[in-house]
């Protein structure tokens, strides 16, 4: 009974998030990152005369660097509060998850602290990515021959 009452009070006072506003923010923030990505892709291709594949790599490195730096400065968490999933779904979210796991466990030392916890959050993305890519790749390799 007490727990139920408590839950009711908590629900009443929890800040109500407007779902429509969240959706629009996520859409706009994500869209702007997409535009910036396309701009960087074309800029690097134009500046360094490289193929789109290479320019894509440079573009990802730029995003990863910005996300890691902002996480290190402690700004990125506030930005995620505002931009919602618009910042998590692009590669910035991947970089942020690694950087924040490393910073959180920094005080436990270089090996058992941030060394072994670096992939605490990003690990699932890599694991499921590799497993699914291998299984789907195998299916395609057997059916279509590559």
């Amino acid at each position: 009974m007490e727990a139920k009452k408590y839950q009711k009070i908590v629900d009443k006072h929890a800040p109500k998030e407007n779902k429509t506003v969240n959706l629009i923010t996520a859409f706009i923030v994500g869209g702007l990152i997409g535009v910036l990505a396309n701009f960087l892709l074309e800029l690097y291709g134009y500046l360094f005369h490289i193929s789109t594949n290479q320019a894509g790599g440079y573009m990802l490195i730029t995003f990863i660097f910005i996300a890691c730096l902002l996480t290190g400065l402690g700004v990125f968490d506030n930005l995620v509060q505002k931009g919602k999933m618009g910042l998590i779904i692009p590669i910035t979210g991947f970089a942020h998850s690694m950087q924040s796991a490393m910073l959180d466990y920094k005080k436990e030392g270089p090996i058992y602290g941030f060394g072994s916890n670096a992939f605490k959050l990003a690990g699932s993305v890599i694991l499921y990515g590799v497993v699914s890519a291998y299984v789907f790749g195998l299916i395609r390799f057997i059916i279509f021959g590559g």
């Binding site: 994500g30 869209g31 990152i33 997409g34 535009v35 990505a37 396309n38 701009f39 960087l40 892709l41 074309e42 894509g56 573009m59 990802l60 995003f63 779904i89 692009p90 590669i91 979210g93 991947f94 993305v125 990515g129």
Partner: peptide, 11 residues
Amino acid sequence: GGGALVPITSF
């Protein structure tokens, strides 16, 4: 173009 390379799906 670039907009499809930056979300995690492109990974």
